[in-house]
Each structure stands twice: as C-alpha cells, then as structure tokens.
Design a protein around this nucleic acid. Sequence first.
DNA 1: CTGAAAGCGCTTACAG
DNA 2: CTGAAAGCGCTTACAG
Lengths: 338, 338
Amino acid sequence: MGTSLKDIAETLNLSKTTVSWVLSGRADEKGISAATQQRVSRCAQRLNYRPNLLARSLNTGESGMIGLILPSISDSFYSQVAREVEMEVEEHGYSLMICSSESEPERENRMIRLFRAKQVDGLIIAPTVRSGEEIRRLVDESFPFVVFDRRFPKLDTHCVLIDNERSSYALVRRLTEDGFRRIAVITTNPHLETMDARRAGYGRALADSGIAFDESLYGEVEFAGYERNLPGVLDRIFARDEGVDGFFFTTHILALEAFRYFHDRGVDINDGYGLACIHEVPFMSVLAPGMHVARMPVGRIGRESVRMLLEDMRRRKSAGEVPPAETVELECELCFRG
Amino acid sequence: MGTSLKDIAETLNLSKTTVSWVLSGRADEKGISAATQQRVSRCAQRLNYRPNLLARSLNTGESGMIGLILPSISDSFYSQVAREVEMEVEEHGYSLMICSSESEPERENRMIRLFRAKQVDGLIIAPTVRSGEEIRRLVDESFPFVVFDRRFPKLDTHCVLIDNERSSYALVRRLTEDGFRRIAVITTNPHLETMDARRAGYGRALADSGIAFDESLYGEVEFAGYERNLPGVLDRIFARDEGVDGFFFTTHILALEAFRYFHDRGVDINDGYGLACIHEVPFMSVLAPGMHVARMPVGRIGRESVRMLLEDMRRRKSAGEVPPAETVELECELCFRG
DNA sequence: CTGAAAGCGCTTACAG
DNA sequence: CTGAAAGCGCTTACAG
C-alpha cells in the first residue's frame, strides 16, 4: 500500500529505529543529529508517509480509541451526548468509535465484543436493559468502562446519572401547585432503575400534595414500538378517567409521541392540561409552550463520563490499581413555564 | 492481556498454525483431525480466547471497518442515514466507525486522515463544504469512498444524491397551484450544488407559473449559527415585502427554526401561509400540518451508499480494476398536505 | 494431518 | 549518534 517506515529507512540508508525515533518526535531525546532529522522528515513528507496506527497499537498495547455504545443513535438525547463525548475525548488525544445497540441486548453484547477485539482502550455505554453477559465480563475482567443514563444496582461500575427522583418530584410538585389534581404518569421500561426513580418522584410529589395515587392514571408503554403502543395507553386513561387534567412524561420520546396523539385527535393539549417532562428537545417549547421540563445536562453527562473513564485508565496505568467504582449524580435544570 | 493463539498452542503442544486454522474455521479445508479441532475449540473456550483484530488486520491488510463521516451527528437526517448505513454494513460483515466533522473542513481532513491511519477499508462521507485536500487525496490515491448528499463537480467520485431540482420544483409548483404567489425561498450554503439545485427548482417553478422572481423574497441564511441568523433574514423579508404568503425551505433545519420564529412572534404559520420543505422530520406534521414536504429516502441513501462502496471494493479486489465513478440520483417521496 | 518460518508495520530495550 | 534484533498477535505460503 502506502509508504512504510522501512521504505524511508531504505531510501535514506538508515535503520528503521532511527526513522521511528524521528517520526515519533523522540529524536532529540535520543540524540539524533539535526541533519538526520531533517533528512528523515523531508523524505517522509516527500513519500507522503502516514503511520499505520494498527501496527503501532499492536506494539504499544494502546489503541487510543474509546468506544461509545448507544441504545439509539438517532435519539436526540443520545446523539447530543455523543457529540459531547466525541469532543471531550478528542481533547485528550483519543478518538471515538460510536455504534448503536438498537436497544437489543444481543447487539449490545456483539458491539462490546467487537470493540474489545478492536482493542479500544475504554468503553462508555448507555446500556440497553439489564446487565448482559458482556457487561458482566467487563466488570469481572476489570476492563475500564463507564455507564451513563442507566445503572446496574448489582454491578460495581463507574456511573453517570441524573437526579431522576428529585427532578421528577419537582416537576410534578409544580403541576399540583398549578392546581392540577388528576395527573397521569406516562412511562416505559419500568424495570430500569432510572425510570423507576422518575415514577417514584411522581408518587412522592402526589403524596406530599395530599393526592392519592390512582392506578387508572398510570400509563405504562411497552418500549419496543412505543410509537404504536402509546395511543392505546392514552385511550385507556381517557376511557377510565374523564377527569385527567395533567400529564407527567418520564421521557421526551413519550411526550413527543403524545403530542402527535393529541394532534391527531384534534385536542389542544396546551389548553387546560398541566404538562411536565423529563428532558427537553429542541422544539418542545414550540409544540407545548406551557410544559415544564427538566433539562438533562447533556454536556456534563458527556464530559463527566469521559473524565471518569480517562481518570480510571490513568490510575490503572500509573498506580497499577483498579480504582473503586464512582457514581456521579448530576442535577437537571428545571424550567417552569408560564 | 488476554489469551493469545500462542497460549493455546503452548497449552496443547500444537503449532500456532494449527490453532489458527481451526479458530478461523478453515480446519476442514486444511484437513485438521476432528480430535485436534475439538481440543483447540475447547481450550479456546476455556481460556476465553478472543482474537486480536488489530493483529489480524495487520496481516490481511483488511480491517473490516468502514468509516462514516457526517457534518453533524445530531442532525436527524444524518443520524437516520447513519443508522441505515450501520445496519447495511453489518449485514455484509463489516463494522462501522462513525464520526462527525462538525461542518469544519479542517476537522473533516483530520477525520479522514485518522480513519485511513486506522486502516479502514472504505469511507462514506457527507462532505462539509468544498473538496478539502484529504478528499482530493482520496481521489488521487484511488481510495474507495462514496460521497452522499453533496457532490463535487470537479471530482470524479461515487455519489448518492436526491433529485433536488425536481423535488423543489414540484413542491413550489404545488404552492402556486394552491394559489400562493409571493413565495419566499429560505436557503443556506448556496455554494453547495445541492442547495443551488433546490433554489433552481424554486426558480423554475415560479417561472412556469408565470411568476417573476423577486429578489426581496430570497432569504439566504449564513449556515454557521443559522439559529441566530434566521430571524434577521425573516425580519428583512417581512419588512421589505408585506405580501409574502408562502415559504419554501430548502432544508428541514431552516423550517424548524422558522417555526420557532413564528411561534415567538405569536404568528400562526399554519393559517394563511403556503409552506413547503425539503426533508421531513418526525414532528413536522404536528408543528405544521399543512406543509408540503419532499421526504428524503434516508433508507435508500444509506443502503445505496454502502452498496456502491462495497461493490467498488469488491471489483478492485477481484478484477484489480478501479471502477468508474458512479452517480445515483434517488427520488424523494412528495407528500402534499391538506 | 501438522509445523517451522517469514511477514504485516510498527516500537523499544540493548549494544556499540 | 546510530543499528541489529526481538516482539506485538496474528496469517499464510511452503514443506514434510
């Protein structure tokens, strides 16, 4: 293919060693004469030399790559985080490989295996559902990785979360203060700790407002194909309870689909309903100007994840120790409207 | 680190060759005894062997990786294409690395260099602006790659586009048939062939409808920071021309930002204005139920790009030829509303 | 049926 | 100041 170290060495009648020293910037340190350095650099330039990073990695045992696994690459929350992670990782001289598990545990396992086979130095994962076997293996083999958005209670891993319970509490509390009494909660993936905490925050807010939890206002949407499943759930809530006057959505994707539902049925959701949602996406404020939202700190989530991962990697290398698992819980910014 | 071929070979008193044959599934072909095969597989399992793909790639000269470079990873169009590309690439036994150029030519150059240094087998790129030096180099060195969404007229590259002029024509034609006469065009990045074709379609539609092009209805938004720039452009159009009764947006991101503009000013854009836009995003139909859209065939764009790339790679390998550059122009699905 | 050997393109002690 | 040699973990002619 392209030019290799050997080509340069042969052209100049030098050893690969010397060429390698120069090109990796360790020439002065190794006391290579300025003249030789010149010759090597010039020749490399002329032959348009580009080092083969695979070969280098094979040697050093470090690929300089971080892998990022997302449940969905087109979800606005994850793609925003991806952007932050990419920037941050680059800042530290690493490069990022992104791929998507499509929320399928088996795919996630495959991706983890693939990344490891490609020798990434560390992994950042927003896990699909429960801890799959590959994640467990990461822990067992103490491979450097950080989990965000979702946590495994059973596994001791680095973890970046948001204050799910607190934010949910604050949002729903605000709805009750606005005077809404029959507030439905629309949620999904209830087995995830993250989602459970949001539902719990809703429950506590009702309780503190002296409102009894009403089973008929609980809407749980099957995650796979939630677009298709949501209308049925909402239909059922309306059928069972005509007095519903508010909605708390535990995640933006459900709120957005709900807007479509109301729109399709000609209902003006902005009129007379109290609305609240975890995570804001760009056009929510246009779709539902009165909705209270808890803004996820996407920038900090991305940056914290990278920070934790690199810090972990650094400590392993320098001290040889495996750092204890750390959990960071970031605050959402609460935006109350109207 | 982990287990290597050598470990297995030593454990079993076999050569690395034999182990390699077995583990790469070429044992029968090489006539390795069933007994030996068993022993090797068992041992690999027991030691939890995972091949180092870097080492393999260094040997074979093929990494099995395709690189995808997007202007923005959080834009819904690109992230949808990314998803399709990832699926399609995987289907063919490759894996995908995604990264974002953030619409910065220098970043794009860096990404291309990085991908090549990592020995990707091929590249799919939605280029930033004009042909950067690294893209020119891809052509010069005849590295396998496909460009989509945007094209370089000067460079002979594989290319997947949509029928920009035709779709734009049809959308604007429909607006004039709906009775709108003073239709503004809101566009950006006018130097891109893609955008120019859309503006041209607008112009031809007006002409065919017997409407003279009016400079004061032309709104060009500086791309960098378009969110901040759009309001000024719209303000100017309204200031210069009170009779404006329609908008053709050459891309979804401008339409979305315009919704925010109208919303902030308390204008109901769905009442009295003719609207049309290239590319549909999920909640457009809720935000502007009456807007005509040309749906980009994201699935086909992704799949065609992969198909062209793999086909090119295949032909190089088998025939040793460099296949001539191919351009595919895909049709948008036109959705007329109301 | 199995193995010794060379090589992919680098890096890095070690030696002089 | 520079080089010969071994090695990273694989694959693959070639030989027997």
